[in-house]
Design a protein around this nucleic acid. Sequence first.
DNA 1: GGACGGATCTGAAGCGCTTCAGTCATGCTG
DNA 2: CAGCATGACTGAAGCGCTTCAGATCCGTCC
Lengths: 363, 363
Amino acid sequence: MATLCGVDIARPRKPTLDTVAGVVGVSRATVSNAYNRPDQLSTALRERILAAALELGYSGPDPVARSLATRSSAAVGFMLGQPLTAAFSDPAVSVVLDGLASTVDGRDHCLVLMPGNETGGPRPETVARAQADVFVAYSLPDDAPALAAVRARGLPMVVVDQPVLAGAARVEVDDTGGARSAAEHLLLLGHRHFGVLTFALRPGGRTGPVDERRRAEASFRVTRDRLAGYLDVLADAGITDVPVWEASGSRRELGRAGTRWLLERDPRPTALLCASDELAFGALRAVRDAGLSTPDDVSVTGFDDVPDAKHADPPLTTVRQPLAEKGRRAGELALRLLDGESPGGPIRVPVELVLRASTRPPR
Amino acid sequence: MATLCGVDIARPRKPTLDTVAGVVGVSRATVSNAYNRPDQLSTALRERILAAALELGYSGPDPVARSLATRSSAAVGFMLGQPLTAAFSDPAVSVVLDGLASTVDGRDHCLVLMPGNETGGPRPETVARAQADVFVAYSLPDDAPALAAVRARGLPMVVVDQPVLAGAARVEVDDTGGARSAAEHLLLLGHRHFGVLTFALRPGGRTGPVDERRRAEASFRVTRDRLAGYLDVLADAGITDVPVWEASGSRRELGRAGTRWLLERDPRPTALLCASDELAFGALRAVRDAGLSTPDDVSVTGFDDVPDAKHADPPLTTVRQPLAEKGRRAGELALRLLDGESPGGPIRVPVELVLRASTRPPR
DNA sequence: GGACGGATCTGAAGCGCTTCAGTCATGCTG
DNA sequence: CAGCATGACTGAAGCGCTTCAGATCCGTCC
C-alpha cells in the first residue's frame, strides 16, 4: 500500500533511500535526516524508519552517493615512495602510517593507500582516480609524477619529510641536524675512520658504493640530507674520502651486506654511520660476523630510534625522531586542510641523539 | 563565445565535464567519451577536447561522480585485525598486503586500508562508509563487528586466513598441518621438553602464560590452529603440560620476553615452537641472553619463513608459507568477485617445513 | 485571539558523471 | 539510385544522496 507505484517487483535490487521512504511513507529527505540529523525529526518516526531500513536490508546511505552530494569523500590518500614491502620492512614507515591512520579514523575518514612503484611513487592514473579529498605524500622523490597528478586535481596535500613543495602543508624533521649530531658525537669520541651506510638515493633500488656523481643525483630528500649531514661534519673535520654504501632499501639484510664491504676498506672504519636503524641492525650483525665487536672494534649509529633500537645487541646509539607524532601531525594537518583551514607554516618535530652502548672511543 | 550562457563568471569553481563541453562546443557525452571511449569520436575532436581540458585545468572525470554513475568505486577495502603498528611489525602482514596491492593496482583499483583497533577489527562505521566494492578481511577475529557491517552492505568479501565465513571467497593456509610438521620434526629429533610461544589468541593484547581456559577462548583462528597443531602432536606423543606463552603481538621483543619465562620452566625446554618467525627471532635472542646456544641447548622453530629467517643467527628452521602469493591470490579473487564471477572453492596455498640450523637433537 | 516561534516534515534542485537509444551524414554496395 | 551499414555525435534519463527554502501544524504569549 505505502509502496511506490510500479517499481515493486524488483526484489533483488538493493534498497535505497527511496525504497525506505516509500515503505515508511515519508519523503526521502526525512530518511536522510534519520541518518544524518536525528534532531530534525521525532524520535518515534526515526525509529520507525530505522526499523523499516533494517527489515529491508538497507544498511545506510551509500557512501559514494553521499560523497557526491556532499562533495567530500571522507578519505585521505596516502602516497608512498616505495612498494609496500620495502616501506613496511622499516618501522619508520609503519609507525608513521599508524599515527596517521588512527588520527583520521577518529573522524570517520578512511585511508586510501597508494604504494609506490619503481619510479618512486604511485602511478599518476592511480592518483587521478583515487577517491580522496586530501593527499599525504611520504618520502616521494622530488620529481614524482604523482605530485603533479595531485596538483592537477587541485586537491590539498600534506607532505611529510619530503619533497618540499610550494603550497603544501608540511611536517618535517631536521634530518641534516640529526645526522650532524651523530657524526659529531663519533668525532668527539675520537674516531677518524668512518664508513657510511645509506638507503636509496633515488627510486629504483641500486646497491653499491656511492661516488660524488651518484650523490649529486639524489632525489630522495631524506637520504640526501642525512648523507650530507654525516659527510659535511666529517669534511669540516678534515676527513674526506669516506666510503659510502647505498643499499636499495632500509632493510637489515641489506645493511649487513653493505657493512661487509665497508669493513673491507683500508683503513678499516672504526665507526659506521647508518641512515636508519634497520641498516644499523644489519651493521651490528655484520660486525659480529666479521669476528669484531661493537662497540670495542667498531662503533655504530642508527637513525630513527625504532622500538627495537634499545633492545639491539648492543643497544643502539641513534638519532631519535618521534615517528608516531609525525604521523599524527600529518593526520591533523590533513584534517585541517579538509576543513578549509590554512595549513600554516611547516610543523617541525624534534630530533635528538640518544646515546646507548653501540658507540665508544676507538681503541 | 562557445561558452554556456550565464554561468561564466564563476571562475574559481572547479571545471567539470560540462565546462569543457561548453567551451569546446560539444555535448557532455562526447567529452566523457574522449576520456573513456576514445574510439567513439574522431581523433581530431578528441584532441581538441583534451587540449581544452588542459587549458581549463580540468583533470579528468571526477572519481566520485564516475563511481556513482558506474556503480563501481574501483577500490578494494582491506580490513585488518590489528592496529597498523602491530600488523606491520610482522612481515607476514606487509608482504601479503604488498601482493594484494600490486594485483589490484594493476587494474586501476585503489586500496582502502582499514586497520583494526582493540576489539580486533575496524569499526563498523568505518566499514559502512568506506568507498569500496569488495572487501578483503585479513586475520580478523571470528566475531568482528566489521564482518557484519560488510554483510549488511551486501558486498562481496574475500577472507584470507580467517575467519571462515559462509559465502565469502577464501584463501587459506594449512596452519594446523604446518604447525604439526614443525612439532613432529622436533619430536623426531628426540626432544621431550617443549615450550610454545604464540601471539594473541584474542584481540586486546594480553601477555602471559596460557592455560586451558584461555586457549578455549581463542578467537583468532590462525593462532588457534597453530597452537593446536603444536600441542596435539605433542599430546599424541604423550607430552602434556607444555608451557605456552602468549605475546600480545608478533614482535621479536615480545618473543624475547616470553622466552625468558619459558626458559625458567622446570624442566627447561630443549625446544621452542614459535607461532611466527618474529617471535622466533626474539626467542633466539633470549636463548643467547641466557648464556645458552641455539641449537646446542635449545632448538627453535618459527612459522612463515619471512625473508630474514634464512639470515637469522642461526638460520631459522621454520614453516614456510608463500606470503606474497597469498596476497596476490586474494587480490585476484577480489577482482573476480568484482567482475561478478563466482568465488569458487577456497584457494589453498601450500606450507612446507624448511629445515635450517636452529634445530638439532637435544644433547 | 492573533501573531509568533518551534518542531516536523516535504519538494525539488542539484552533485558530476555514464550510457543508451537515437539522429544525421556519409560512403558503399549491387 | 535505393538501401544500408558505419561512424560521429547528442539528449536525456538516471546513479543515490544532501540540503535548503518552504509548508504545516500546534502550543504559547501577551
